[in-house]
Design a protein around this nucleic acid. Sequence first.
DNA 1: CCGCATCCGGGGCGATACTG
DNA 2: CAGTATCGCCCCGGATGCGG
Lengths: 186, 186
Amino acid sequence: MLQGPCRYTDLGHGLPGIATNLLAERLRQLEEAGVVSREAAPPPVATTLFKLTAGGEALLPVLRELGRWGGPLLGDAQPDESFRSYWMALPVRPLLRGSGAGRPTGPDRVAHRRGAAHDPHRGGRIRAHRGGSERPDAVLTGSPKLVVGLLSGHLGLAEARPLGLRVDGDIEVLTRVRTTSATAEG
Amino acid sequence: MLQGPCRYTDLGHGLPGIATNLLAERLRQLEEAGVVSREAAPPPVATTLFKLTAGGEALLPVLRELGRWGGPLLGDAQPDESFRSYWMALPVRPLLRGSGAGRPTGPDRVAHRRGAAHDPHRGGRIRAHRGGSERPDAVLTGSPKLVVGLLSGHLGLAEARPLGLRVDGDIEVLTRVRTTSATAEG
DNA sequence: CCGCATCCGGGGCGATACTG
DNA sequence: CAGTATCGCCCCGGATGCGG
């Protein structure tokens, strides 16, 4: 749901620590439950793509609310915990709504610097950009705590930058981020 | 969240099959995570009540969306699966919204016939009533499949009644139930 | 590589008994 | 009623292998 149609390997990578047999079994169960469907990719790639059915897509509101609740907590990742930058895609999306005219239909994109996002506490840094292209409106670089804190409204730009957050691109986009978002971490 | 403040035993009963030590450990974790708080009940009862904190209550939208998605599936319970009637409280609530004037602030209530709801396939029948009082607007009696089917809009009154559904009380309340609800079972 | 199947070891969890 | 203690199973994580 966060990445669109995925290969088996990509799904495994997005579920750190999952065993291959378990992933295969779950995909089988989800398929026969009508939540997931598998599809042969066109010849050039020639791989299996797993995608959500309409019923599976209907789970989006669930994940959205779950992201709204737990998104801010992504910044509190312990050193031994895994982190994937696109896990912030859902929490970030509602914050960027209505932030401009002529928004493309493509999903927001949150990408990580290649090979560096696996350990967020040892130099792992993330970049979040939207628009689904190679030309993001803005690029945030910094620890998950800083990026999440900024996007969830806990931190202001003035606070985050001295702590190591770097901002490239259209800063104005970020000023439109709500500074008062629903804090739900209890 | 479905029942309000609960005793330890009630929580265990609502989580069929859970071990007592596991429930105790989870409650401890949830408490230190700031999701649940424990509170001594007033002298007459003299027991511990577990309730949600503000942060815990903020999970309501998550459960609501989850109930919207999976609620209709409650009717498909297998013979070896457990069922508690108040599990339908959340899926039912949005269906009854705006169905009258002067709605009280109390939560909707879904109660089961005492001692009969444990096995829905061997005479287990449920009653769903709202208003939080002993005088419900309407009482539905029948198998979970029938009750859930009716409340989720899959079944009409004309279809459900010949199949064994009994309706007592204000029938008009039921006619206001949306006949076309979002089906999300994929 | 990609999509698994298989095997092994540890531990989370279900069930039961017991206690203040 | 609100737990604690113990046992045993099986689920799951980790590694390896293998056909396409």
